[in-house]
Design a protein around this nucleic acid. Structure first.
Lengths: 189, 189
DNA sequence: CAAAAAAGTTGTTCTATGTCAACGTTTTTT
DNA sequence: AAAAAACGTTGACATAGAACAACTTTTTTG
């Protein structure tokens, strides 16, 4: 149940077993269905999630109701609506499991308690932020000036698991292109 | 000389004068000209900069030699090529002062020494990362599906100082539109 | 301060990609 | 298992914005 999280934490930092158990004791488990909403856009994000099994999507909707995918996280990764989690303002984005999933989650209160009392956990958080920041940078700047074909090739190179696990519609909305365009591009490799 | 940095650090965290002086003692000063390169794309980023006066641009060039602006930082802010600074790989981006500037800088070694020994400094770094991450998110997702006009309006709303301090050419390359398009859009408000 | 270079503007043309619609296929629901 | 809904593909058409070029204005340099 918590062994995957243990494994990942151990991999990320040098942490003794006692501290590890302490960290883990703050996490709870939740099982979700396909397309289950974890966080609504008008809610304030209270939890940090770890994905045991399944996958999480972060998305928004515009006034016409079109969904816009922001981020996908797969098993053995952390996910949350970070801006809302940090600033405790309405998320203005949705969190959703796009498959039947098994998640561990920790409350914001407990999370920041660990950050401020367990240096190894603070380090892990710093690494998550660094990695998240770098990924976001790569995505923005990688896409700058790319046409649709180049975007698709970029995804194939940098996030191939996305094409395997996510519907074309969602991938298209992640890339900022229409599903038709994605379909046409895939047909010419 | 270091008073602006002191002021900003004090504003960000609760830090006693002794620790503050210690932090500051690791910073050195550098004066630069307009369009002076601080970091080449094939170099590994060794410094974190604080802008006393002036402004820094982060940009890349594509194979045709077109410059692509990634980020602008103005006075009283920090700036570096973070992915390279973190991972110590070639930056694949340039750092440049776009005006005559006065910068303070700290080496990576000293920076991480402070992060690991001065909790208040670690906290400041976490905040920089959080803020940077949120900004990056806003920019990616704010721009998703925007046409040129909407991008310009977004900038006017969220980063008006950019339009005041930066050439149209650079702004256009930041928005991912051509200078002509930016010019046309500005003419119809 | 004059000359040169760079940046900004504006018109014309061309292309990538969005939109809409029709149809077939897969997935979900009951 | 049948019906309904969602998704994917493909064609026809419309359009925002890129590219190029000519010209003007601003900035930089010697």
């Amino acid at each position: 149940m918590f062994d995957i999280l243990e494994k990942i934490l151990k991999r990320k930092t040098d942490v003794d077993d006692f501290t590890l158990k302490k960290i883990i004791s703050y996490f709870k488990i939740i099982h979700t269905k396909r397309n289950q909403i974890l966080l609504n856009s008008d809610e304030i994000c209270k939890n940090y999630y770890f994905i045991n099994k399944g996958s999480i999507r972060l998305f928004t909707t515009d006034k016409e109701g079109n969904e816009n995918s922001r981020y996908f996280a797969f098993k053995e990764n952390f996910a949350t609506a970070l801006p809302s989690f940090i600033d405790q303002k309405p998320a203005e984005e949705y969190l959703q499991t796009i498959q039947k999933s098994e998640l561990l989650y920790i409350s914001r209160t407990d999370f920041y308690y660990l950050v401020s009392t367990v240096p190894q956990f603070a380090k892990i958080y710093t690494e998550i932020l660094e990695k998240g920041f770098i990924m976001a940078q790569k995505r923005i700047y990688g896409f700058q000036g790319f046409d649709a074909m180049e975007k698709v090739k970029w995804i194939i190179k940098h996030q191939p698991e996305l094409l395997l696990n996510v519907s074309n519609k969602m991938v298209a909305s992640y890339l900022g292109i229409s599903p038709s365009t994605l379909s046409r591009i895939k047909s010419r490799l």
